[in-house]
Nucleic acid binder design. Structure first.
Lengths: 194, 194
DNA sequence: CACCTTCTTGGTCGATCGTCCAATACGATT
DNA sequence: AATCGTATTGGACGATCGACCAAGAAGGTG
């Protein structure tokens, strides 16, 4: 019947606060998340927030990064799991269509992009996450024979995030329908004609 | 020495409030814009805000729509001014590189996307703006011989907004560098191989 | 047991918020 | 000059905010 230790309870509270922050950022927006709403959602008293985190912004920053990292790592793993580069891009786009642009994960990412323009710390962490994924995708495209893997990877990533943005306005849009148009990016480039 | 009439002063105040809202949304974020900050930026007393506008949200909504409409109409005019479809897309991408993703216009648009997910009125107005531009771009691509003009237009627009998002993290990214990869969208589609 | 560290409570502080309103100012109209 | 409608002022209302802190509770260790 040994209850949780002090350290375990502390970790639990921090995890609940991070989860509550990820939910609330998506629901009401980064700037609307307050310590008291966070505490209520996490089931703790509001005074605890500033015990476990240096500031509200530090909490939101950590919540955003920890929420985005598994998304990008999962997407990178999905690329490796595909049989070939065209299948990898196809699978990536199908995966994108599991998001509506207005779901918690999508909104967390977009909110984080905006917060990053006003928070140099967050911007550096997000740039690192995006650079890692771009390098991963770019390496795959280079192995497929492209001479411009960086540009192709940039286009695919921009198309994905932009489509999520547009899907939040119009749910009829679909990433999978763009697959035929992006498929040629996974084939060896053949000069200016391509 | 005839001074401005009452009606002229009213229009002037409304215009200053709209301009102040567009600036502040970009600077500090949609949810952080307050009536008192707006009044200070517009050079008026804070009580006036609720005389000219029904609510703060109504003011922000109108400011966002009025800020985005000229951007999209200008881009549509740019498409028509180009000599041919490939040139139009090329010019569009070059125009995008005039924005950094962290400039006032870009931030206003991205903030509006997020606000639209929580404001049905704003979402409908933005969807109409985007639909109009997509139809314009799609018609041009159809004239260029594509059998999938809607998908091609969706891809181009998603790539543009997504790249702006990514440029806010990494200023080295460039829309113009993606032009060679998008150029083939302006040529007649030739079946599954393309 | 006493002692230490970590965690939690409950509350205060000054500041800011959106909205509303009575009183006033001012151009236009009669 | 008297009147009307619009524009503006200055302040009020209750609510919420981020941050902070003294006091106490709880588990670990001597």
């Amino acid at each position: 019947m040994a209850g949780p230790t002090n350290a375990e309870r502390g970790r639990e509270v921090r995890a609940r606060l991070i989860a509550a922050a990820q939910e609330l950022i998506a629901e009401i927006g980064w700037n609307a998340v307050s310590t008291r709403l966070l505490a209520e959602r996490a089931g703790i008293r509001s005074g605890l927030v500033h015990y476990h985190f240096e500031s509200l912004q530090a909490l939101l920053r950590q919540a955003a990064v920890e929420g985005m990292r598994p998304l990008l790592e999962g997407a990178a793993a999905g690329l490796d799991a595909a049989p070939d580069p065209p299948g990898a891009v196809e699978a990536l786009l199908v995966e994108v269509d599991r998001y509506t642009g207005a779901d918690p994960a999508s909104l967390l990412v977009i909110e984080a992009y905006l917060a990053a323009t006003r928070d140099p710390d967050l911007r550096d962490r997000m740039r690192e996450l995006m650079d890692d994924f771009r390098a991963h995708l770019s390496a795959m495209l280079a192995r497929a024979g492209r001479t411009d893997p960086e540009e192709a990877a940039t286009l695919i990533m921009a198309a994905i995030d932009g489509l999520l943005l547009h899907k939040s306005l119009d749910a009829r849009l679909s990433a999978a329908r763009l697959a035929p148009l992006l498929r040629h990016l996974t084939r060896p480039s053949n000069g200016a004609a391509q």
